[in-house]
Design a protein around this nucleic acid. Sequence first.
RNA 1: GGACAGAUGGGUGAGUUGGCUGAAACCACUUCCCUGCUAAGGAAGCGUAUUCGUAAGGGUACCGAGGGUUCGAAUCCCUCUCUGUCCGCCA
Length: 414
Amino acid sequence: MIDLKLLNRDFDGVVTKLQKKRVSEEVLESLKGRYLQLKDIRTKLENAQATQNEKSKLFQVYMREKRDISELKIEVSENKRLIAELSEELRISEESLGELLLNIPNIPHDSVPDGESEDDNVELEKVGEPRKFSFEPKPHYELGENLNWLDFERGIKLAKSRFTVVKGVGARLERALINYMLDHNRECGFDEVSVPVITNSTSLYGTGQLPKFEDDLFKIEGEELYLIPTAEVSLTNMFADEIIDGDELPIQLTSATPCFRKEAGSGGRDVRGIIRQHQFYKVELVSITKPEESYEMLDKMVECVSSLLTNLGLPHRKVQLCGGDLGFSASKTVDIEVWIPSQGKYREISSISNTEDFQARRAKIRYRDGKKNRLAHTLNGSSLAIGRTIVAIMENYQNENGEIAIPDVLTKYL
RNA sequence: GGACAGAUGGGUGAGUUGGCUGAAACCACUUCCCUGCUAAGGAAGCGUAUUCGUAAGGGUACCGAGGGUUCGAAUCCCUCUCUGUCCGCCA
């Protein structure tokens, strides 16, 4: 969540910055109003509580001196009523503030370009040249069915649409990619961990998936538990409610997990193939850093992912997201898009974000900086979405008879 | 799933006739003193959040979570969650 003190201190500045994320001034006005109201009520309540504490202490004095306490009792019980009233007011005020606050997106970094949609994103760098085909490249789903790597019908039979069974060399390729990426990330300085793929709602609030994006999550019936949409949830929330020793930063973690998304609202998009699935493997990177080091870390993570694609021989480009395309929790995001020959365009395969202290504030991830406790910065990025990497390899490495070459770096993993 | 037990500060662990305990003591940690040296001794400090204050320093809340009783609760009552042990069950 955003910093209410900052909102109060520099209202116009926050308004201007959040315009990039299409947050209206009225909403922020209302948020600030509720914050000030809350502070006011809290002050009144605390004063009343101070009185109560003081008076309560008199009782033992009176009783020791055998003085009459009936008058004191009346006085105090009136104050007690006041406390009850104020507490109720405070509760309502907190609720109303929280409702609004939890739905306000993060403040974008100054470098974020203004824009409405992905069309306004800014290309930072192209890496590698798309291959010139002497034939018409086939889409991965055709290749995959012909090679018997992808079994769409059985995926649907087992679950429903947007689930796929991966077979044969395809399945082995999936496993090889996971292993290769984890090894690569380790070389980049990320420690491998294995995490739960089900988390509680508190964790999902912490990283910002809840309350706003409940519709996109698979929930376990009858429990406050959800299948994770990304390992970012598990990895980041490992440090929720903790105060990390400053010497231990930065923390850099990587984990391979299945991810589950309902893809609500994406009806009709990428219906063919495995670009958009309800379940897919992804290798994730998460970093926890000191505030002054987080943008350096963002660059490092982008490079780690980019080099992964370079090593796989996949042409890609780095794109900085514009305000309108920026995710809810992100302050700055660099997407990495890989060349998809059958579509003749670059498609997102990784998204690397610095959320600054947005998630840290929600999840209470702090570190000890000398004597003081400060909010850490959290970053996350895919490295990579396995399904989409398979798509990219299939399409970029296909030859005319429909066979697929395997990138050199993977041969030792297959 | 069944039966017990428990949940206190970084750790161990006091505190259950309700008030002087936001919390003893010990350990760890920090600073200083002493000591001719990787030991020992001594002094002080050392939870989180929030609020007021330039600061010093106050206030408020928090002893798993939420409610209740009371002028007042870590201490009494209720509900929930989690953890441990034993049994059953399954990888």
